[in-house]
Design a protein around this nucleic acid. Structure first.
Lengths: 161, 161
DNA sequence: TATTGTTATACTCTATAACTATA
DNA sequence: TATAGTTATAGAGTATAACAATA
């Protein structure tokens, strides 16, 4: 890549970047590390389900509805930590693709119950296999006890008010 | 999810309806936990620096430039794990606000060296105090050794290809 | 009055492609 | 040819505000 071919040793201070990264200070921050780790896993997720054309959020929504048929939008929003407007946008996209359907609740007509269509169930089935491999790629970096601690640590961070 | 491998303490489900969240299945995924934790810390960060009107990315960019004056855009992009277009958008916003300035490199005129303006340095100074409190709010959840493991775990996740 | 869904709006991040200038 | 910056474009997530229907 450089001008010379085999120049391994270099007296110029250009190689200092290798020893002291530009992000040296930032690396000390939990928020920075968390964001970088999440970005890496997000990219890997998108690549893993590229042929299915869904995002993390969309997959989470399908997953939740599949496990809890009839869940109202507001309940899904609360469960996934999103506001109603964001949830609306996500449900709209899945609705437009025919992956789920809205059904007005008979008990409370303000509520829109959410159900997966057969197409949604089929897509989720494919997604589950890819997500399993995706997860394995990352969780395999840790022992069982390490992973347990890590999951619990992330839960603690989430619950900070 | 309901394996019976390890002899573990029994949970005490006094009220199953309340204790089984809609996200029960999702909670088992590292990617989901990571995303939720990052979202929580991101929201907390935005609130912590609300009066300064900067995002995590923008703060990271200011921080990096302040520690490495004259860094080229492409170097900052690599360091922060972003592509050139994303970096361009972020630098543009900071430039429009007069927080940094671009200066064509004399050594390589393709490069735009980045420097903080006095306004940028002043804003970063204020941001640092708020970020310190913000970080403390989250890092205080863990012991020193736990935090060390957590930071290293997040680095491992980031480096997955 | 409060809740739920909805619409509108705006900003940020991410990503790709193509173009210009320079090496 | 490769690199750095730039511009254009698009999709996705986030958030706020306001409105109608319903409880």
């Amino acid at each position: 890549m450089s001008r010379s071919s085999k120049a391994k040793v270099d007296d110029l201070p250009e190689d200092l970047d290798e020893l002291t990264p530009l992000t040296e200070e930032l690396e000390g921050f939990l928020g920075y590390r968390l964001r970088r780790a999440n970005a890496a896993m997000h990219r890997h997720f998108i690549a893993a389900v590229a042929d299915l054309g869904i995002t993390q959020k969309q997959a989470a929504m399908l997953w939740l509805i599949n496990s809890n048929p009839g869940t109202a939008q507001v309940s899904a929003a609360d469960a996934l930590g999103m506001d109603r407007a964001t949830t609306m946008a996500i449900v709209d996209r899945l609705d437009e693709r025919g992956l789920l359907l809205r059904k007005q609740s008979s008990a409370d007509r303000r509520r829109q119950e959410l159900y997966l269509t057969p197409a949604g169930q089929n897509l989720l089935r494919k997604a589950k296999a890819r997500v399993a491999k995706h997860e394995e790629r990352f969780t395999s970096l840790f022992t069982a006890s390490e992973l347990k601690f890590l999951l619990e640590a992330l839960r603690k961070l989430r619950d900070v008010t």
